[in-house]
């Protein structure tokens, strides 16, 4: 007698095909997603749209208003703002994504380590993040900047990433603390599953939805931070074009009443940030909805 005839298969209903459910009008932020995609694509392939070198200073054409040869005008040094927007956007977005990558990696490692650690180590790690959290961010940034020497986009991304992981780590740690007592994590540990196995299979899939919002907001925050730093003159140098360093020129530009030098990069920056906020909020709503469905 084989196992099959000894144990009849019971308690399984056949699956029947069902008509697809009617789709509810989705509340996905289509407009924001489209606009953001357009800006990102423009930054990636902006070089193809214009033959002009964004760094070339055409001293014969300084401070030209938008129109004609220069769709967005030129700045006080005669650079073409249209091509600067795209190549500067590339730098700004790179900083946003790269620093978020850095901060998310640190947050996941730190948060899940602290969540899985025994009580005393967890307390120690959390006090550490609280200390980091209570030191003004700007101070750490300036300090790290001075260590790194001349600022470059990658350096700035690293500095911003290293200073913005704490709140995400706290959220992850709280989630992990809850998850680690669930029986399936205990079971995986009994079977000999290591830290990374448990993190990848059991922890990360369960906390990823709750940090999605923070990740999007982190990209946003990093872009803002870069602009702020550059605007204050402790970020990227003027000859590295980013939206932030373009804005830092605006002070000079306002004296010559060339509003476009301020307005156009500002518009792109604000549009990008708004789209990201929208997307982040939509993500958060979806997560909350799923939780209430359970």
């Amino acid at each position: 007698m084989t196992d099959q005839d000894r144990f009849a298969v019971v308690g399984i209903l056949n699956e029947e095909p069902a008509p697809p459910p009617r789709r509810r009008p989705s509340r996905a932020p289509v407009l924001s997603a489209l606009l953001l995609a357009l800006i990102v694509l423009g930054c990636c392939f902006g070089g193809l749209m214009t033959a002009k070198d964004p760094a070339y200073m055409d001293l014969a054409n300084t401070n030209l208003p938008p129109g004609g040869e220069f769709p967005f005008g030129t700045d006080t040094m005669g650079r073409d703002i249209f091509s600067m927007i795209w190549s500067g956007g590339r730098v700004s977005l790179f900083i946003g994504f790269a620093s978020t990558l850095v901060s998310t990696l640190i947050a996941v490692a730190f948060g899940s380590l602290s969540g899985m650690a025994p009580g005393w180590l967890d307390a120690l790690l959390m006090r550490l993040t609280e200390i980091l959290l209570s030191v003004p961010n700007l101070l750490i940034v300036v300090f790290l900047q001075s260590l790194l020497g001349t600022p470059s986009p990658a350096g700035i991304a690293l500095v911003i990433g290293v200073t913005s992981w704490t709140s995400m780590a706290k959220v992850i740690r709280t989630e992990v603390r809850q998850l680690r007592n669930s029986d399936y994590v205990v079971a995986a540990r009994c079977m000999g599953g290591g830290f990374f196995h448990i993190l990848r299979l059991h922890l990360a899939p369960n906390f990823v939805s709750s940090i999605m919002f923070m990740v999007v907001m982190n990209i946003r925050g990093a872009i803002v931070a870069e602009s702020t730093l550059s605007f204050m003159g402790i970020g990227l140098p003027l000859d590295t074009i980013s939206w932030g360093s373009m804005l830092s020129l605006s002070e000079k530009a306002l004296m010559t009443q060339s509003w476009w030098v301020l307005l156009i990069p500002g518009l792109f920056l604000v549009a990008t940030l708004l789209c990201m906020t929208n997307l982040g909020n939509a993500l958060r709503k979806r997560v909350n909805q799923r939780h209430s469905n359970l």
Partner: peptide, 9 residues
Amino acid sequence: RSVGLDASC
């Protein structure tokens, strides 16, 4: 199968 379930699960 040995616990009485089939592949549809």
